[in-house]
Simulated scan of single mutants.
Amino acid sequence: MKPEMSFRQITPEGPVSVTDIDLRALAEIYAEENVYLSVYLPVSRENEHVNRVFVNSRVGAIKKVLPADLRPEFEKTFDMAEELLFEPAVSGERGRIIFASAPDSFLHVYRLAVEPEKSLVLDTSPFLLPLARLRADYEDYGMLLVDSREARFVCIRSDIAEEKKHLSTDLMKKHKKGGWSQMRFNHLRKEAIKSFFSEVVENVQGTCDELQTRGLVIAGPGEAKQELVEMLPKDIQQNILDVIDVPMDISGDKLIEAGDSVLQEDEFESSLNRSKEFKGEMLKGGLAVAGVEDVRNALEQARVNVLLIVKGSSVPGWICERCQNLQANTRPPEQCDRCGGPTSSVNIVEELYELAQRTGAEVEFIEQRDFLDSDDAVGALLRY
């Protein structure tokens, strides 16, 4: 399917979060021939020479095997992307993704604050699996940095820190001789802290309602953060990923590093739980299937609730670019046995991922050691 006119040109100037990239819309795009160029590169001065060598090597390899009738279109597509590939990095940019197709006047350029693995692919559709892995690794989450005087709510989006709220209060200083009694002073100070925390709770509730994040990390020095946790509404408490000790003057980079460590641990536990759920369903003959063929059939019937993909997996096969007939572990025939359309070699895992996006299924990347004692690269938890 060709991209909508409004979706053909996207070139934001600054770094974006991977969660801002519309994977579902990208997964809807495909052509009958190999006209979509996808490039993933880390971006820095140190990477520039390595990137040029890598790009030149891949472009040369593609030209050697591309049919003569498609070479002019590929050269036009590469011309669209080439200058953008090697532009100097903007502030905060560590990676760049480019999707381009001259025949469809399609050009998307995404500057990222995280580094992707190098990849350059020419295919019948945008190559999305590396982006999907990045998205799984860098989900949005909130961080509340708090002590008894100050609170900062920061949303971490692909290692981009966006401050949403900053509250502070002027607590009473240590009282002078002849002033209030110590007991009276301490009581008033506690009431001031409680009032401040009540304001923080109200703002956290409003901010969390506005954002769609994986969860919330509570951070700060001392015991104040734990007092605040106890005041938070139950629904927010249930979404707390962890409570960690950090100083209030922690640098932005260190704050992101601490939050990412929490998120990675939560991701690991989530993946492990999905694997256990999947194995349990398989053991009792429940709502789960394994293997490319069964998973493909379930996806085509929109029965998949969660697609499980083994990290780093790849399955060779072919697809018909006309009717989307998908076959694993076989070489592509000259024409599709279903509709007679053109076929091309594909990574079946990539195609299953795109099908999951089109049918609204969740995707979970899991470690091989947590999956099955077999060579299966994919499994699925079913809706029915």
Rank of each mutant, 00 (worst) to 15 (best):
V43F: 00
T77C: 10
V50D: 15
F78V: 10
A61Q: 13
E83Q: 12
S38D: 04
S57K: 15
D69E: 14
K63G: 08
P88S: 11
F86H: 09
R58Q: 14
N47C: 03
I62H: 00
T77Y: 04
V59Y: 06
R52T: 09
L66K: 02
G92R: 07
N47S: 15
N34K: 15
L37I: 03
K64N: 10
G92P: 05
V65N: 01
E73D: 13
T77N: 06
F78N: 00
L85E: 03
G92S: 01
F54N: 10
V59N: 05
V55P: 02
R58I: 12
T77L: 14
M80P: 02
A61C: 04
E87T: 09
K64L: 01
L85Q: 00
L85M: 10
K64I: 11
P72N: 01
Y36M: 04
S57Q: 15
V39A: 15
Y36A: 03
N47T: 14
L66M: 11
E87Y: 06
E75Y: 09
P67W: 02
S57R: 15
R45G: 15
V55G: 00
A61W: 07
D79E: 15
L85V: 01
H49P: 03
S38C: 11
E83A: 08
I62F: 02
P72F: 05
E93M: 04
V90G: 09
E46Q: 13
F86R: 04
E83H: 14
F54S: 06
E75A: 03
A61G: 09
E73M: 09
P42M: 12
E48H: 02
V59C: 10
E75L: 15
K63H: 08
P67D: 07
R52I: 09
V55R: 08
S38V: 07
F74P: 00
G92D: 05
K64A: 10
A81L: 08
K64C: 01
G60L: 10
N47R: 08
R58M: 10
V50H: 13
N56C: 11
E73P: 00
F86G: 03
I62T: 00
M80A: 11
E46G: 14
V43P: 04
V43E: 09
E93S: 05
R45H: 09
A81G: 04
Y36G: 04
L41R: 08
E82F: 13
E87R: 12
T77V: 00
F54V: 12
